[in-house]
Nucleic acid binder design. Structure first.
Lengths: 259, 259
DNA sequence: ACGTCGATCTCGAAC
DNA sequence: GTTCGAGGTCGACGT
């Protein structure tokens, strides 16, 4: 069956499949194969997958996905940028996807191909994810009063020695240093410990009082306790508030805020 | 076209698609939809995806994958364990995938379905990845001389306070304590720092000399330097050597080695 | 090009 | 159940 934007083929011979796939790949079409195959992979690791019927997706950018009937993740794959080769040898159709940097090779051997779908679709529909941790950081830098009146950011990604990088580093209206750790979702003990590591790491380096503030939409009960024990603070900040701020500011880069 | 193990449908009406999908889902079949759709997601984050033609995969375990023509990752998805609802409203077919813990909802609205593939396949083919970090640990515990003659493992996952858990903890032929950090691939500075944290954390707790050994197939130049600076050691260990050891020992559990 | 870090991370194992 | 760490992580951003 053929249409403007896609074609499907039922139970083609391996020879027919060879030509269909070659043609589709040369035109950078999305190609979906459904058939009995085994897979070999060698690169950062090595793996083998014995015979079974799977869904194989070849994308326009050189990605390959091999999916079994369960699980979110593909059992084997190749990231974007791979180049393909198809051939028929003995009783198999062999599909090879190679990438360099790192050098990795994926071989798929089909004994039978039940179904092929090819499509040249473009899909220009816009995708928008509402708030990421980066968005929350941008919102705080754009509108520091989200934290408290008088808060003044000094830097983003402040290094705290071996402890890593502080999300936002600044000072409050009283001249105290402020270390902010941001979590996009409910904060747990891990976030508190992370904040504590940053505060401890920087405490010795400045001759000024340091406050540590955990910023998140909500916080777990035990994390709240752990905060109090360590003399740290919690500031509730909803993704919605950040979204509203960003909508008015429309900012691209973090550095634009740091003067 | 119908076959023992799979069926395909071209350009079904939304009403027909409704029945096909419902039937397939009730039988826990793999279902692949190709059509024009928009997507809403709300849960750990929120997102919208405007109209476009995509490949939608519904798996037997309740996973959903929505793939665009490029990229390794699905643009939207639902992890295994989701439950489905399908309905036709106005001019759309609405497919809902909900999961709890955490509460997440995915809505896919199709204006047109170009193609459907359903299959009840099982796919029992075995998948084997050759060496994991756990395999390397097992290999070291099974054959400690992979590290050096006279090395004797005392425990796996030895706690080192706040620093975390040591991969392998033991002693050498001279009675020095040995802390081993394993990397399955080329070791970087992060691995050195991790090893250093373990050594520092345990140094105060024992009245014996402590050696820190980074075990990996290879090591980055700067990591090598960082090792030397901190008086730590590197022991090269190839995945292949571990694979060979495991092949002969064929071991299941870590604890079998610790006496 | 490389390194670092977030992710609707996913996945498995240990507790 | 939760927590923790690995992943052929991927992908984005900064250098």
């Amino acid at each position: 069956m053929v249409n403007m934007s896609f074609s499907t083929y039922n139970s083609p011979s391996l020879e027919d499949a060879l030509h269909i796939i070659r043609d589709a790949l040369s035109r950078h079409m999305l190609t979906v194969l459904f058939g009995n195959c085994r897979v070999e992979y060698e690169g950062r690791a090595s793996s083998t997958l014995e015979w079974g019927v799977r869904l194989v997706i070849l994308k326009a950018d050189g990605s390959v996905l091999i999916h079994r009937p369960t699980g979110y993740e593909p059992v084997n794959w190749q990231p974007p940028g791979s180049s393909f080769r198809v051939e028929v040898l003995d009783d198999n159709l062999k599909l090879t996807a190679v990438r360099s940097q790192p050098k990795e090779i994926l071989n798929i051997f089909f004994s039978q191909i039940h179904h092929i779908l090819t499509s040249s679709l473009a899909d220009t529909g816009e995708f928008s994810l509402y708030v990421s941790e980066l968005d929350m950081k941008k919102a705080i830098l754009a509108s520091p009063s989200l934290i408290e009146e008088g808060f003044h950011p000094l830097s983003a990604e402040k290094e705290a020695g071996e402890a890593g990088f502080v999300d936002v580093f600044g000072e409050d209206r009283n001249g105290n240093l402020v270390i902010i750790e941001i979590k996009r979702v409910q904060a747990g003990k891990d976030a508190v410990l992370q904040l504590k590591r940053y505060v401890d790491a920087l405490r010795g380096k400045f001759n000024r009082p340091i406050r540590g503030i955990l910023v998140a939409p909500e916080i777990q009960k035990d994390a709240q306790f752990l905060l109090a024990v360590n003399n740290l603070e919690f500031k509730q900040l909803s993704p919605r508030a950040c979204y509203d701020v960003l909508k008015t500011f429309k900012v691209k880069k973090l550095s634009e805020f740091l003067t």
